[in-house]
Every structure is written in structure tokens, then in C-alpha cells.
Nucleic acid binder design. Structure first.
Lengths: 341, 341
DNA sequence: TTCTCTACTGTGAACGCTCACAGATGCATG
DNA sequence: CATGCATCTGTGAGCGTTCACAGTAGAGAA
């Protein structure tokens, strides 16, 4: 019986109306907040919905409202960079769940190739989603401009670089996080503090370097460019950067590395060069990824509040869709002390 | 001008028809394969579509066809287990892209809590998606039965355990992979080969253990239950299991570990116990995750063809949606030789 | 009583598309 | 010349919802 019922053509708003002894309009009103509906009518409709197992047909609703009641999670990052980042998982999961709580499905879109980018933009610009959660940190991304131009509500994860367009975003306070780490290194007596930066076309790369510079200046340490090496967030690039630093400035006693993955590479290089961590050289990472815990020694690092970033992104996007102006949300980071510094 | 155009109410099939000087029906036919359309009419419609920037309204289409032209990726795994698994990223990404190639959006659904499960099932059973890519390896999952009962096309990742319902799935050949590894250990002269299994309510856990047992029997090695320890795929559980094994059977010269993450824990425990890898004890992992490459020594492991698994899942699901019977696809694994064995 | 206002309810008309059907044309066949 | 068939085209209906509007009933004010 129940199987037969569930197999049968699903109940429509008509069925519910008939079952409850009211009109379609009343059922619709109950469905959309229940204003201007008498308590008796509402009760009858609720009961009828339960009896018939009615679920609203979102296509029919969308057709007339123009809304899709869905949101895209768009990743325009080169895949290798972000998809392997464990933080990405947290971000994606938390966004999905925050949206699910409002009954809004998340459409996952990946724009790796040029073809995929065209497809996804086409889909979004056609109005098939109400808004976009954008993960795209490299600068000059044409997608940001296109979305803005199309008037689609967008909230980015991290500050969209090189965009004149005013677009809302949610980010961790990278600069302050970097300052925290450098202050920590200074407080433990280090005075020749080097850094391995991320790519300088990403907000994280730029901001963390800025925080490093500012803190050095704050403590009156000389701004020595030989202490700065650039990486690309990969483990291998961290290793290379550490080699370069050791050659250029053998007397360093600390390294602030802009990501845990690169910090792992730095640890490899230092151990190969016979430098002890943290005795000879202290190492500070960024991200608090699983790698930070599994490396030997474990990494002192900066934790980004990914769960809060996610919920804020969703909250901000929903507000934007509801008509509010784009907002910027900056969230504080936390220093996590472990063995490496 | 172009901004004004893109801001204007989007073109409908009527606009295209008028622009091309044909009827709605003809435009619709062009949109759906172009059968029974003259070359001239088709050319006119194509041109009109380009000029008007027309994109089909999927809601209107779905309303009448009953299809949604979208697919759900449903994760009913306890989050910590699967969402941290780097293979999961590959799976999700490859599925998304394989679907995108057919212009089918992927809806990400996470059923962690009971509430989320109800929500997602409600959504799926209401017919809002055409099919489901299911990731749920623990046995007795009521979701599998519910979906099957509702008649929704489903393809699972890995064999759904404890399900009488005939449901299609795609999986790596876990058993044969385990056999490959044990054979490899045997071939390198090991004779006291222990194993750390995954959870035995997962297909991977069960199958890999079976492969281990079979291969031991094949070589005439005694089936010694003290050589078997159970883990839960976490690094810590690998460490615990290794301690237990060393205590129960100190003379082991090899361990086949059912996941790389656990194998990392095993390496930790062995190094702490003063056993050298691979000299004293060889260690074989499973998954070929990034951890396999970053551990010291690097892990000899079994690679699962996640990219192929993804594309096969999508292919199979699409076929299922098109009316074909559920299919089972088993894909071969590969031994990756590194330092640990 | 009569009027006005508020709370509530029902009814057609859309939304943009596909589908079934009817009609038209051209060509080969009887 | 009539018939059949395949190819092509246009038209009306309807998918399930929301929205605007018209209408009713009851309470309170004049």
C-alpha cells in the first residue's frame, strides 16, 4: 500500500486543496508563511499535506517566481591547488550544511578548463541559481567580473584580488594571523626571521607577507629582502624556498611559512641540511591542516576559522539575495602552539 | 548596450521563434536533437538563438518533462571518516566534471544528522533529482533501502553491504588489490605477514581482509588470528593496532594495512618500538593517498582508480536513468612500489 | 442601520516549455 | 491519377505553482 502510494504520481497542490476542503490559493498561502490564513484552514491544510505526503514541485514554483531556490558553489581555482587542500573540504561541507538548514540545495561547479568555465557561466547567467559562493583566489579572474556584470549575487571566499568591482567576501584575517605568528617567533627570542610566502597573486600570499613585513618593522628589525622566498603552496616549493633561504642567509633562526604544506617541505629541507627544529631554527606554518599535526616535529601554526567562514558566506549570500548590499566579513585567526616554534 | 541586454528579461522560446520566423514547436525540436527539422529552419533557429542569447529555462522544461536533469551526490558517511579522505575529493571532482560534460548539475547532499537525512530523502523522493550517486559504505544504512523503494535510480560507490536490494554499484577490486599486496610481501621473502583491517562493516574492510586470508592460504601459510588487528581507518587506530600486533606476535616481518592513513600510524608505532622499515618489518598500505608519498619511508601501496570509478559511476547512473538495469562494475587496482616494502 | 476596515478565501491568468496531433508538402508506388 | 509514406511545420493544451484581484464575512464606528 505505502509502496504503491509512493510510486503513484505525486500529490499536487490540487490534491491537498481537495483533501483539506479549501482552495489552491489557501494551500499556497500556508506553504508560503501562512499569512492571511485562518487557524482552522491552516490546520486542515497541514493535516492534508501529511496525509497526501505532498511535497512542493520546485520547478513549477520557480517557473513563476523566477527564483530557483538553489545556490552554486563555484570553484575556479586550478584544481591541484585548492582541491587537495583539506580546508576546502571543511568549507564545502559547512556551506552545504548551512544551506541545507534553509532547504537550499548546493550545486557544485568546477571551472577548471575554459570549456567548463563557459558552461558554468552560461548556467549561472541564465538565472538557474539565485547566487554564487565563489572560491577563486587568483587575481584577474574574468569570472568575477562576468558574474558582477550579470548582476548575480556573489560572495567570495577570500578577498577577490585586482577587482575594482565591489563584491562581498568573507575572509580570515590573514594579515593579523601572520603578525601573530611573527610576534610569537620574536617573543621566543628569534631575531633573524625569514618567510616563505604563498603565490603573490593570491590574497593569502599578499596579506601574510604584509603582516610579516609590518611586524618586523614594528620590532625595528631590518627589512631584508634576502629573507623572503616565494612558494606556490606546494610542499616541493617549500623545500626549494628553504634551500634558497639557507644559501642566501645561513644565519636565520626562524621561518614563517605561509602554509602548512610548504612548511612540511621546509622541515624536510632543514632536516636534510642538518638544522634542528626548533633548536636551531623555529618554523611557523599557516592553516592548521592535518599535515601540521602529522609532521615531525608537529607544526606551530595559524588556524583559520573555516567553519565560521562557511556559515558567514552563506548568511551573507542569502542576505545579498534578499536585496542587501554586499558586505565584507573578516574573521580572526588563532595561534596554535606545537613543537616547531 | 550589452549590459542592458543581459539585464533585460531573458529571451524565451517565443522570442527565438519570432526572430527565426518559425514556430515554437520548431525551435523546441531544434533544442531537443533537431530531428524532423529542415536544414534551413535549423540554421535560422541556431542563428536566432545566438542573436538573442537564448538559454533554455530548465524549470519550465522540467515542469512538463518530469525530469530534473540534475543528479544528487549523497554522502551518508559519518563525516569524519570520508570527508577527510583525500580520495573523496577526487571522486567528487571527477563526478562533477563527468556530469558537467553532459550539462547535468550535481547537487551535493550531506546526510550527517538524522534531520539532514530526512531532508535529503524528502527532496530526492519528491523527484527533484533524476538519480543519486551514493557514497555510503557502512552496512544497514536505511537510506539505501528507502531510495530503492522509492524507485529512484541509484549507483553506489563500493558494494552496499547487507543490502538484499539489487542496486548497481562501482567499486575497485579490493580483494584482488589485497591479494596483490600480500603476494608482493611474500615475494620479497616475508613469511609472518600480519594485517590491520578497516572497519568490518565496510566493504573495503571486509574484502581486503578476505583477499589477505585467501592469499595466505594460497601460499600455505597458517591462518593465525593473532596476526589480524582491526582499525577504523584512522591514523591513531593504526598505531594502536600495530602495538597490539607487536605484543601478540613479536616475530612478524610484514604488515598489510588496509589504508594509508592507518599505515602511517603503523609506521609511527614501529619506529617507536625500534623496528626498522622495511629492513625488520615491511609495511604495505592501501589507497595511494598523499600520505603514502609524504610518510618516511614512503609507502608501498595499492592505488584505486578513483578517476575511472567516478566516470563509471556517472556513466552507469545515466544508463540507469535511461532505463537500463542496474549494473555492477569492478575496476582493477595497481600496486605502487615505494620504500616501505 | 449603514458604512468601513480587516481578515480571510476562491478564481483566473500567467510562467516557459514539451508533447500530441493535425495538416501540408514532396516523392515514389500502385 | 490516386494512394501511401516519410518529412516537416504550426497549434492548442497542459505541467504545478504563485500572484493579482475580486469577493465575502464579521467587527466596530458613526
Amino acid at each position: 500500500m505505502s509502496t504503491a502510494a509512493s510510486r503513484r504520481r505525486p500529490a499536487t497542490i490540487h490534491d491537498v486543496a481537495r483533501e483539506a476542503g479549501v482552495s489552491r490559493g489557501t494551500v499556497s498561502r500556508v506553504l508560503n508563511g501562512g499569512h492571511y490564513v485562518s487557524p482552522t484552514a491552516k490546520a486542515a491544510v497541514d493535516a492534508a499535506i501529511r496525509r497526501t505526503g505532498y511535497v512542493v514541485n520546485r520547478h513549477a514554483r520557480s517557473l513563476i517566481t523566477g527564483r530557483s531556490d538553489s545556490v552554486a558553489f563555484l570553484l575556479t581555482e586550478p584544481q591541484e591547488r585548492f582541491f587537495e587542500d583539506p580546508n576546502f573540504n571543511v568549507l564545502l561541507r559547512a556551506c552545504t550544511q548551512a544551506l541545507a538548514a534553509q532547504d537550499i540545495p548546493l550545486l557544485l561547479m568546477i571551472a577548471g578548463t575554459e570549456d567548463e568555465r563557459r558552461r558554468n557561466l552560461r548556467y549561472i547567467e541564465a538565472g538557474h541559481v539565485d547566487g554564487v559562493l565563489l572560491v577563486s583566489s587568483h587575481s584577474g579572474d574574468p569570472v568575477v567580473a562576468r558574474l558582477h556584470e550579470a548582476g548575480v549575487p556573489v560572495v567570495a571566499c577570500g578577498k577577490p584580488l585586482g577587482q575594482t568591482a565591489r563584491i562581498g567576501y568573507v575572509a580570515a584575517d590573514d594579515r593579523e594571523g601572520a603578525r601573530d605568528m611573527v610576534r610569537h617567533l620574536y617573543a621566543s627570542g628569534r631575531r633573524r626571521i625569514a618567510t616563505v610566502t604563498g603565490p603573490l597573486d593570491t590574497p593569502g600570499g599578499v596579506e601574510r607577507l604584509a603582516g610579516y613585513r609590518e611586524t618586523l618593522a614594528e620590532f625595528g628589525l631590518p627589512a631584508d629582502e634576502t629573507l623572503i622566498a616565494t612558494g606556490d603552496y606546494s610542499r616541493a616549493s617549500g623545500e626549494d624556498a628553504a634551500h634558497a633561504l639557507l644559501e642566501r642567509a645561513p644565519d636565520i633562526d626562524a621561518v614563517f611559512v605561509a602554509s602548512d604544506l610548504m612548511a612540511q617541505g621546509v622541515l624536510d629541507a632543514l632536516s636534510r641540511a642538518g638544522r634542528k627544529v626548533p633548536e636551531d631554527i623555529a618554523v611557523g606554518g599557516f592553516d592548521d591542516s592535518p599535515a601540521a599535526l602529522s609532521s615531525r616535529p608537529s607544526l606551530t601554526t595559524i588556524r583559520q576559522p573555516w567553519d565560521r567562514i562557511s556559515t558567514e558566506m552563506v548568511r551573507t549570500l542569502l542576505a545579498r539575495i534578499a536585496g542587501e548590499d554586499p558586505a565584507t566579513v573578516i574573521l580572526p585567526t588563532h595561534l596554535v602552539r606545537r613543537e616547531s616554534a
